[in-house]
Design a binder for these strands. Structure first.
Lengths: 115, 115
DNA sequence: CTGTATCCGCAGTGATACTG
DNA sequence: CAGTATCACTGCGGATACAG
């Protein structure tokens, strides 16, 4: 397991969750995977600000932590699909709560929005 | 508002929530504040791995984002209390979900625990 | 199409010492 | 007690080019 996660264990369960899910775009990816399996390129389009390397790293960490499953279809051209594991699907309440709060936060600070 | 939050707005509400709450020890602090107002030193003891500088920064960001309120009591010695704002209290579902998932994750990976 | 390799900047985190 | 100042490090996140 990754070191930040290990450290978080010594403090609080919420900190563990943050360590596993707090990386850039991770929860966004998980959210989209609730709509069904997605290919690498699809995720890249759904999370436009994440470049390939970063997206690959986040997916590998999510895979390492048992949240997503990676399926390679032996084809030419290659096709790789990502889907949620059972542990990943158990994130549904978290994603729902975070999504709702994010919207609430945005609405509350709408006056500070630049454009 | 902080830049990471601004960037997250362009992607997804869950990413906004991660940007606001994803800092080290932030959700742990919020969780403890649900038990009532806490002084700076108390929070330092409740989150043992956070040093003063880091804890100060996280609290300032949470204050800036309207999640916590900072109350200075003009005394000698000084006394500063942190409490949740209404926006902070609206985090209750998030903290509950994250805490439960963190425990679930720990239980599931207990075999990999080092000590 | 789905990656990897290389290089890089810097924000986030921290240790330590000092201050009102 | 509740911070701030200073210095430093690490690794995340990213740009770009290459590969199977």
């Amino acid at each position: 397991m990754r070191l930040p996660v290990q450290r978080a264990r010594q403090v609080c369960p919420v900190e563990v969750a943050v360590s596993v899910l707090g990386g850039a775009w991770k929860l966004t990816v998980v959210k989209h995977l609730f709509d069904g399996p997605r290919r690498f390129g699809e995720l890249g389009r759904l999370v436009p600000r994440a470049n390939r390397k970063t997206l690959t790293r986040q997916l590998r960490e999510l895979e390492e932590d048992g949240v997503v499953a990676r399926t390679v279809h032996e084809q030419v051209p290659p096709k790789v699909e990502y889907s949620l594991t059972e542990l990943g699907r158990s994130l549904h309440p978290v994603v729902t709560a975070m999504d709702a709060w994010g919207e609430h936060f945005e609405a509350r600070t709408a006056s500070q929005r630049p454009a």
